[in-house]
Design a protein around this nucleic acid. Sequence first.
DNA 1: GGGCGTGTCAAACATCTGTTTGAAATAGGT
DNA 2: ACCTATTTCAAACAGATGTTTGACACGCCC
Lengths: 229, 229
Amino acid sequence: MKTAAKPRRRAAPRHPAHDAGTRDRILEAAGEVFAAEGFRRATVREICARAKVNIAAINYHFGDKYELYREVFSHFARAGIEQYPVTFDPGGKPEPQLRAFCRNFTRRLLDPGRPAWHGRLIAREMVEPTPLLDEIVKSFMRPQWETILRIVAANVGAPPGSELARRCATSLIGQMLFQHNCRAVIDRVQPGQEYTPEENDRRAAFVAEFSLAALRALRGAAKRKAVAR
Amino acid sequence: MKTAAKPRRRAAPRHPAHDAGTRDRILEAAGEVFAAEGFRRATVREICARAKVNIAAINYHFGDKYELYREVFSHFARAGIEQYPVTFDPGGKPEPQLRAFCRNFTRRLLDPGRPAWHGRLIAREMVEPTPLLDEIVKSFMRPQWETILRIVAANVGAPPGSELARRCATSLIGQMLFQHNCRAVIDRVQPGQEYTPEENDRRAAFVAEFSLAALRALRGAAKRKAVAR
DNA sequence: GGGCGTGTCAAACATCTGTTTGAAATAGGT
DNA sequence: ACCTATTTCAAACAGATGTTTGACACGCCC
């Protein structure tokens, strides 16, 4: 199974008739399967079965599995970003923005349904990287990272590029990603976990409070350090 | 590729001559490859090449790939647990114990070298579960989880089984696991990351301080809540 | 109706992966 | 040296997976 490098037949050009059927069904099915299984474990047979199309359709419409994977990312990015925006307003208050960030970030990972597929695709790609990772870092992750750094920096009172802000942002994101990426384990050591939207929001709220408490204290500590000097 | 359920030839019984060669070389190679690649992506061909043995040797000595995987876990558990102990002493101070936990947990994920393979095997199994997960949860993860809960509970001043302790423990672990599991992304959005033992300890120390600050604050909040009532 | 382009299909193909097989080599004991 | 058990080996095998192929169907335009 070669993921890249081999010259491929060009995927069929987009055509008005295309958007009414097979191609879209494949994208939908692939979005769901890739988000749940990741690139490697997802099979074209499962995607085609789910989409009720012939197995050669992926090659006809997308060229190959890898290009389908790439298309899935761009196809679902918009919905995911709109539904779960992560933004920073320099004129706004830092704490509510961090809370909003936690809520949206957690939702994009744990929410049931289609808009969360993008978030889950990203999360999977993070733990099982494919050759597409570099593109995704450039187009999505790095800009998001910069935004998160700003949110965190505003709360901890350090420049966004500082080591303090970076470490805090790492700690913040890790808490939420853990709840998605290691869910199989969490559910086993903590039986009875629920994943309703309300419970997911409670998770997000806790991460926000835990982290805000830490950021406040670290902000205080940095201030005392500056005064002492 | 069937990971389980098929009746398998019994692996060769252990024999004095065994421990001097092929079998051990396979275990070493497999420990390294499984820790780096996970079960699914690791191939018996790579393991055998690394161990300089014939490809049929895995089946002869271990039965099949999956049994080898299981053996690798038990084989490396002892070294990992000894090198990176996670324990709780009820008579000891809570904060130094949490710091020690962070240090050892982070080291078991990020340290170079063999003793960290067990930790990395566990981390990989968490994000890409195999049918072995239930066994590992029972033999290793759940006991560890209970210990971590105790450490956290002592710091936050709540019972180990409480929701507060559980959420805090989740937040604590997530920070460290993120640094290992999503390392490919971290290295791309934060170029220049170093993974020397010293730098790893600095990471651990930061997670400890971040989390202790949060725990102190949450402890205070819980106390004020109790008083108010 | 014919020609051309597009889309679909079943079968075949190519590759990879884990496993099996039977012969040969090796090790250990008498 | 001989016998038996164990170990190793190369080749073959079986199954899974992604891709290709060529025929056919369909739609559109002249």
